[in-house]
């Protein structure tokens, strides 16, 4: 089942990348894509993520669609933040590495949280431990306490990601 899902995903990516099919060689291109997708889905199904079930649940897909604009809003804020700090003559930074603790359980949710934290204002995930501890490089530290830092950094995403992945 997992291999079938990865096969379909790989084939769709291939087809979009080679989309404007020429008349003469389109069959060849599609057959090459099928072959490559079979090889990829057989060889690499073990390293792929295992939590794809959320794709089949309408409620989770709905929350994922809600999450996209929220995510882009924070990315935009993060960019203006970096632009401000990079162009300010005095370079107003107060960096350091703080520790936070996430309540999310599944691997996919934690990876999504780590990537979301990296792309949002002033924070960069440095390391992630099995018990949910994350070390975050913060460009403008507001609190060095674990609880308060979690409140500032992770809470806004955890609400959505728990609904999508858990």
């Amino acid at each position: 089942m997992r291999r079938v899902v990865y096969f379909i995903v790989a084939l769709v990516v291939w087809l979009v990348l080679t989309w404007p099919f020429g008349t003469a060689d389109s069959l060849q291109v599609i057959l090459a894509g099928v072959g490559a997708a079979i090889i990829v889905s057989v060889m690499f199904h073990e390293v792929m993520p295992t939590e794809y079930k959320f794709l089949f649940s309408p409620v989770r897909v709905f929350w994922a669609i809600i999450y996209i604009p929220v995510f882009f809003y924070y990315i935009l804020i993060a960019n203006f933040d970096v632009v401000y700090r990079a162009l300010h003559p005095k370079l107003p930074i107060k960096p350091g590495i703080v520790k936070i603790k996430t309540s999310l359980k599944t691997d996919a949710a934690r990876v999504a949280l780590a990537n979301s934290i990296t792309l949002t204002p002033g924070t960069l995930t440095v390391d992630l431990k099995d018990d949910g501890t994350m070390y975050i490089h913060w460009i403008n530290i507001k609190s060095t306490d674990t609880e308060e830092a979690t409140e500032y950094i992770a809470k806004k995403f955890e609400y959505f990601l728990a609904k999508i992945f858990e």
Binding site: I93, K94, P95, G96, I97, V98, V126, Y135, I141, T144
Partner: peptide
């Protein structure tokens, strides 16, 4: 190491 301006390094 982090820059001298850094105020904390919990990871280290």
């Amino acid at each position: 190491s982090l820059t001298d301006k850094s105020i904390i390094d919990r990871y280290a």
